[in-house]
Design a protein around this nucleic acid. Sequence first.
DNA 1: CTCACTTAGTAAATTCATTGGAATAAGTTA
DNA 2: TAACTTATTCCAATGAATTTACTAAGTGAG
Lengths: 386, 386
Amino acid sequence: MQGLPKKASREQSKLHNYRLVFKAIYDGGAISRVDVARLTNLTPTTVSSNVAILLDEGLVQEVGLAPSGGGKPATLLSVLDDGRHLIGLDVAGHELRGTIINLRGAIRQRQTLALNGGNVLEQLYQLIDQLLANTHNPVLGIGIGAPGVINTTAGVVQQAVNLGWHNLALRDLLGKRYGLPVYLANDSHVTAIAEHTFGSQRNAPNLVVINIGLGIGAGIFINGRIVGGDAWGAGEIGHVVVQPNGILCRCGHYGCLETVASTSALLTKLDASLPQAEPWTIAAIQTALANNEPTVRAIIDEAAHYLGIAIANVVGLLNAQFVILAGSLAQLGNDLLQPLRRSLAHHALQTLVAATDVQVSTLGSDIVTLGAAALLLANELGIVRD
Amino acid sequence: MQGLPKKASREQSKLHNYRLVFKAIYDGGAISRVDVARLTNLTPTTVSSNVAILLDEGLVQEVGLAPSGGGKPATLLSVLDDGRHLIGLDVAGHELRGTIINLRGAIRQRQTLALNGGNVLEQLYQLIDQLLANTHNPVLGIGIGAPGVINTTAGVVQQAVNLGWHNLALRDLLGKRYGLPVYLANDSHVTAIAEHTFGSQRNAPNLVVINIGLGIGAGIFINGRIVGGDAWGAGEIGHVVVQPNGILCRCGHYGCLETVASTSALLTKLDASLPQAEPWTIAAIQTALANNEPTVRAIIDEAAHYLGIAIANVVGLLNAQFVILAGSLAQLGNDLLQPLRRSLAHHALQTLVAATDVQVSTLGSDIVTLGAAALLLANELGIVRD
DNA sequence: CTCACTTAGTAAATTCATTGGAATAAGTTA
DNA sequence: TAACTTATTCCAATGAATTTACTAAGTGAG
């Protein structure tokens, strides 16, 4: 049903330990060679030789001496944060967003391109060209988050209705054009990778990120790995039925989570039930909630109620400790979290609720580009747990 | 938040490749050294030396020559199926079940012990003693599936209310007593391991097994690994709320899946709505369904309806291709599957439904002991994909 | 029947990353 | 200043995989 694992060779071992050393330094902040050896169980000799390579590659630097504890003071090592720059792209519904970040996720450049209705691929080239034109650090590669069904292993966009892409071999196209490593993944999956790499719960082995915007999607880490699904369709949580006889959803069923808890559904509902001169926005909701506007709060509470049911299902199934809300609705913060947590407590086992921590993402609107770039960290530099 | 991966050493490489060779032979049935080399990308020399060890260990045997294809005929290798015997234990609600199986999952011995209300651990010792007394093949170790919250990594039963066990270090106790490797896991998780190792969809990277008996639990494989959860509580699917204002469940909430679709709930319902001289049993349901008894069919259809909703949630979240039903209710076969598939189609995205295959387990009532023994195959012999 | 050819498997020499022990560097403490 | 610590490097040894050469054992053409 599937191939065998890869063989172990000297090269593989070497690469593995090289990455292990890098990761120890990456996680360690400022750490000496001996401490890396202690942490990794590698011998000091092996660590030294790998550190020599890392210094040579410009990925690591020596940053001074540690205070002596009765012997030769240790030379502290740390990652050269801008030793590589990473390109992260977000192919959103109506615009292309691109950022260049360093190895720590610090944003060094940001470009946006509103889609003009023409060839999306050409505009993507244009955006990448712009980003590259303004960078002078060595670029590690290109990471892309896009909506739709994306075969990450093959680097192919199998289906992206909004973009008109069908079986587009995006990885190979970009790889050939720019001569750089390219990785792509579904945008919801990519948000989870962003949280796993740069978020408040980085490195948590089990992590669910719920992305609430025009639709609702989830990205899932289980046992330290992203869940893609057998047909690259994992995380379609927006079409869980939470209201057996609810509103018709664009998917053809009734009462999907998206119809009651997506940002677009809420804005539509507010425009209908509480009309204003301007259409409702997230900012307007925040203001209304600050003023304790009862109708608005009731609508948000209801959405939180249904999100709580959906999250209860997820937590019951996976027992993931961390559930993180991202996307535009996450901006509501505690106004969303509090009713959601109440609903979760009503719909999941007490022990599981106690073992679950629902939070709001701190990564903001760059989450997709950050996650796209993080694909490179994971695949090219091995910044990922086993 | 978590430790670093293990370092790569020569020993590790050696073990890895040794296991790789074994797995290739295990999967290959009867395969030559060269074909193992082709399959694994190992060099013929490396394969030969590992095969020599496997022959010496009595795990593999030479089983004749392949027809020549214009050169020296290949010597075929295959696993010596009874080269090791595995002990699998099922700590069930009211009895202890133990089997001895060989490397292919063939059952060589079966023992049952009805719990007498006394010390469960003592009775477990007794059962193992009996099993060991009647075996003369080398025993690889002991695997255990038990209800409750089980920390597989530590080998500790954290909580098993029915058994009165709390933080019981079962692995170390048994390991010390018998001098054998011991592994334990939650019984629902173990059913998934059984399917993954011996079932019709063995080696499927993503696999969900739904175990329907007194309660409802799930065991999940994602990316080729069992999902334990951060607090060892993954798979608690029985307490998903499917009927917002339903019956009170033992967990304190209302309308849990268990209250409408567990075997016990169905039998209770039948006893109430269609009383008979004898209490209802699965066998009686089968007979009634064969006679197209309308009330019984309606009750089963309703349960299937709710199971379909729960499975739609799972499939939407994980996009696992294979969903396998096990436990006593699975004996109903197509009478359960057909309405369940209809319900699934109504509650999940069409593309996901098309990518999902719901089946009934073929492993029968030995599924837990088989899975428990399979823990040994995975951990001691590496019969598991990466 | 012999010779050229093919394929399977083994043996010996080579490679190279890890290992282990000794040497060196650079401090602290009595 | 001497004794001790701790960090790091140097160097020879190890051992598993690899490479290359070789043997084993068949097929098929002439």
